[in-house]
């Protein structure tokens, strides 16, 4: 047999093109960090205690110090005068004999309770929860929703699009009918209608986004299958005697797979943004859980109080992720489809 020549298949060539771009490498590094942290949060290695009250209400971020003017902060606290109980009072206090016991019990109790700290690394929220832990946990939830719903939508869209585009005919008409129904209602209204019926919850959000969001992928893949179906290489496969399944999945699918990947990447961004908005409106992730949308929902009253750190944290963390993912999607598209890229 001949030895392997330095011959690049499509994916290796595209990978090389992508890797040659500094910005793409940077975006990928950012995304890898996010996925690792989200994965760790999912395994419970980090941010497990995001729901615990670890600081005082609206604890300052550490870099501001604990004397930043804070209505509920340390320096504005009404000093609690410690009641000094002298012997004279002891004499009239019927509880006096039990003081020791009370104090002992109190001490035992106090040990169990973590003393809320005045400052947290990135500050605390109204209930004294650590914003850093919260944003990590929220990231895990938002990213998994984005990924899962995008996978679902792309799967539905690809399968239906491939069937409709390849076979056409009656089956194609039926699928077109389906598509027309789903697209004649504005997307966001349809999401809300589904959400109204199926209620709240992480899995509901995934299902709703997935079942409503497949139309774009369907359109794209269907058009592509119709185009590829008429190509000579498929005709040649037909002349050879390849089966329908073989033509659909072995011949055509690899030729549209790059579009599917780009579509997936695009939908992850779109769905994360959609989840954020749904949760913000109270129609997405339930409030006993947390997501980036829920965090933004909480910040509106905080801003009025001058507590900007939760907003700043979630804005920076979320935007970094979404912008990196968006840029990455663009660069991926350019690398995979150099002809269709922005000229």
């Amino acid at each position: 047999m001949t030895q392997q020549q330095a011959s690049y298949g499509f994916w290796r060539a595209a990978g090389k093109r992508l890797w040659a771009d500094k910005l793409a490498r940077f975006c990928m590094a950012v995304l890898v960090v996010y996925f690792l942290v989200a994965g760790a949060a999912g395994m419970g290695w980090v941010a497990k205690d995001w729901n615990e009250e670890v600081g005082v209400s609206y604890a300052n971020p550490s870099f501001l110090g604990d004397d930043y003017p804070n209505p509920q902060g340390k320096n504005s606290i009404i000093s609690q005068d410690v009641l000094v109980i002298d012997e004279k009072q002891k004499a009239v206090d019927p509880l006096a004999p039990y003081y020791e016991e009370i104090e002992k019990n109190a001490a035992a109790y106090e040990k169990a309770e973590v003393k809320p700290s005045w400052t947290l690394l990135l500050g605390g929220d109204k209930w004294g929860r650590d914003v850093l832990d919260k944003v990590i946990k929220a990231g895990q939830v938002s990213i998994s929703i984005g990924l899962a719903s995008a996978l679902l939508a792309v799967f539905i869209g690809t399968v239906l699009g491939a069937l409709g585009g390849y076979f056409g005919g009656k089956l194609g008409d039926l699928l077109e009918w389906f598509y027309n129904i789903f697209t004649s209602v504005p997307y966001i209204l349809l999401v809300l209608a589904f959400a109204a019926v199926f209620g709240k919850g992480v899995s509901t959000v995934i299902l709703v986004l997935g079942f409503v969001g497949w139309t774009g992928t369907y359109r794209l893949i269907r058009a592509e299958y119709i185009k590829q179906r008429g190509r000579d290489y498929v005709m040649a496969a037909n002349a050879i005697g390849a089966s329908h399944g073989r033509k659909m999945f072995v011949h055509i699918l690899p030729n549209v797979s790059h579009l599917i990947l780009v579509q997936l990447s695009q939908l992850v961004v779109d769905f994360i943004k959609a989840e954020v908005i749904l949760s913000f409106l109270g129609l997405g992730v339930p409030t006993d859980s947390v997501s980036w949308g829920i965090m933004i929902n909480e910040v509106m009253p905080e801003l009025v109080l001058g507590k900007w750190w939760q907003l700043a944290t979630v804005a920076v963390v979320m935007s970094t992720f979404v912008v990196s993912f968006g840029l990455f999607t663009d660069l991926l598209r350019d690398a995979l489809d150099p002809k269709a890229s922005r000229r």
Binding site: F10, Y233, I240
Partner: peptide, 20 residues
Amino acid sequence: KRQLQIIFQNPYASLNPRFT
């Protein structure tokens, strides 16, 4: 099918670009 074969006009379109 193996007895009747065809060679197409466009040499760029008749080979699957993802196959070696």
